[in-house]
Simulated assay, not measured.
Amino acid sequence: MSKLQTKAKLIQFDAARYLGSEEAIAEYMTAVLETEDPDLLLVALNDIARAKGMALVAKEAGLGRESLYKALAPGAKPRFDTVLRVARALGVKFTARAA
């Protein structure tokens, strides 16, 4: 007799699927900024941009869609003003507090 084997089908985790509210986005960005990891910041901005729609975010940031993809790609080194324009387009504001 053979046993019937079923394989679990897992989907890859995508943070963008869980960023449907401004509160979720704010919590996500706060956690990312606390890591002080610039690469993780780009990943988070990419996740939020995908959640909101890359074409819309690119337009609001004054960038081409391809330029936005390149700026937020792993290992990219975007200019700080580009990061600020993207954050503004995403409705994200960076704040500072005493360490």
Rank of each mutant, 00 (worst) to 15 (best):
K3P: 09
K3R: 12
K3H: 12
L4I: 12
Q5F: 14
T6N: 11
K7G: 13
K9H: 07
K9Q: 08
K9P: 00
K9D: 08
L10G: 14
L10R: 11
L10V: 14
Q12P: 04
D14F: 04
A15S: 14
A15R: 15
A15N: 03
Y18L: 03
L19K: 08
L19Q: 01
G20S: 07
S21P: 03
E22G: 03
E22C: 00
A24I: 01
I25D: 01
A26T: 05
Y28D: 02
Y28Q: 01
M29H: 04
M29E: 10
T30R: 15
A31V: 03
A31H: 02
A31W: 05
V32I: 14
E34K: 13
E36Q: 15
P38K: 06
P38Y: 09
D39N: 14
D39Q: 13
D39C: 00
L40Q: 14
L40Y: 01
L40R: 10
L41H: 05
L42P: 01
V43N: 04
V43G: 02
V43W: 00
A44M: 06
A44V: 12
A44D: 04
L45P: 09
L45E: 02
L45G: 01
D47Y: 02
D47S: 07
I48K: 05
A49Y: 04
A49D: 08
A51Y: 12
K52I: 05
K52M: 12
K52G: 05
G53P: 11
G53C: 10
A55K: 12
A55Q: 09
L56G: 07
K59Q: 13
K59P: 06
K59C: 00
K59L: 11
E60I: 01
A61C: 02
A61E: 07
A61R: 09
G62C: 11
L63A: 08
G64F: 08
E66M: 09
E66T: 13
L68P: 10
Y69H: 09
Y69Q: 04
K70V: 08
L72T: 03
A73F: 12
A73Y: 12
G75Q: 04
A76N: 02
A76R: 02
A76F: 06
P78I: 04
R79V: 00
F80Y: 11
F80M: 13
T82C: 01
V83P: 09
L84A: 14
L84H: 09
V86M: 03
V86F: 11
V86I: 15
A87T: 01
R88H: 10
A89N: 08
A89D: 03
V92I: 14
K93I: 11
T95N: 06
A96S: 13
